[in-house]
């Protein structure tokens, strides 16, 4: 058991390191000092001496490998570097931006879970087969709706037309409600799809028929038996869902004009501010890795069969 958790942890660290390296290669090595070209803009009025000082401070004169070692070293020390655009420490920017995104994530994740649960129940227990088949198609169709469009329509209808929720001049949780709920729709789609197909596989098993033959009601079978069996495969995509929420935040915060991590990422791309972009990617990868590790560690608690094989494997 301990061996299993340790091996999972090692795997998680490897993925984290790999993703860090990949983002470094993509963002910092390839263009060389192309990101620093902007400092040569005459309008900034920097002297060649100043430019070379800046270059040195970013380590741009070093070889790619030395730069990599430098960035890796300071990241491990918890130093995320400085924004190339503004010179502000990246950690300070992240600190200012994360509460907005966190609120957005909480609302959209909570909304997505409730939406997925309600929808999956309906799709599994609806009375007629054609109706169930039709409901079964909805998550796939919902994931075909672009989230930015959905949010624009939500603003037009909910705020402008029905005047239910204001979008201008709000802050805190109030500002997270409409964007969070809009984002919940595309987030819930893969959750529902994975859960539904897992649930259908479970429901095709003979023990479901045996339960029905004992007089169990469909709702009871769904919640007491199908749910615990179909949950593990659904949980395996939670890391992915976290990444989707963060990616969704880029679009959502742009549409609603919120100052969160997504907005920060969007500006970082626009300004080629690689230090900021890499920091945000690192956050999302770290979240992905931590969530996946947690799910893996929890899996044996949900499924007794895993518990045994791992106990056997570690013995």
């Amino acid at each position: 058991m301990i061996r299993y958790i340790l091996s999972r942890a090692a795997q998680a660290l490897l993925v984290l390191w790999g993703a860090f390296t990949l983002s470094f290669v993509l963002l910092q090595v390839m263009p060389g000092d192309a990101v620093l070209i902007k400092f040569q803009d005459p309008e900034l009025g920097l002297s060649p001496q100043q430019i070379s000082d800046i270059r040195a401070s970013y380590g741009a004169d070093e070889s790619a490998f030395v730069q990599y070692a430098h960035v890796l070293g300071r990241t491990l020390a918890g130093q995320l570097g400085y924004s190339i655009e503004t010179g502000v420490p990246v950690s300070r920017m992240l600190h200012a931006a994360y509460p907005t995104t966190l609120r957005l994530a909480v609302v959209s994740f909570g909304g997505a879970i409730m939406l997925a649960a309600a929808f999956a129940t309906a799709a599994l227990l609806a009375p007629l087969r054609p109706l169930r088949a039709a409901l079964r198609l909805v998550p796939g169709l919902a994931s075909g709706i672009p989230v930015f469009w959905l949010e624009i329509v939500a603003i037009q209808l909910v705020s402008f037309h029905w005047k239910l929720v204001p979008v201008v001049g709000v802050s805190g949780w109030a500002a997270a409600v409409l964007p969070g709920l809009a984002l919940a729709i595309p987030i819930s789609a893969p959750l529902t799809q994975v859960f539904l197909s897992a649930a259908e596989r479970v429901m095709a098993q003979p023990f479901i028929d045996v339960l029905r033959a004992r007089g169990a009601s469909p709702l009871r079978i769904l919640y007491a038996h199908v749910l615990p069996n179909a949950l593990p495969p659904t949980l395996t995509i939670s890391g992915l869902v976290f990444g989707e929420i963060l990616a969704g935040a880029v679009v959502t915060e742009t549409v609603f004009g919120l100052d969160g991590l997504g907005q920060l990422a969007q500006q970082a791309v626009a300004n080629q501010d690689v230090a900021v972009l890499q920091a945000i990617i690192l956050i999302s990868v770290a979240g992905f890795v931590v969530i996946n590790f947690t799910v893996d560690a929890l899996h044996p608690l949900i499924d007794p069969r895993i518990r045994r094989t791992q106990a056997g494997g570690a013995a």
Binding site: F207, A213, D303, P304
Partner: peptide, 24 residues
């Protein structure tokens, strides 16, 4: 029917390997 199933008519299924919920 649900009150009759299990109480007055019971089923002994074919495939014992898959006829019990594996996680309970």
């Amino acid at each position: 029917l649900r009150r009759i199933r299990g109480a007055r008519v019971a089923l002994i299924p074919q495939d014992p390997a898959h006829s019990l919920d594996p996680v309970r």
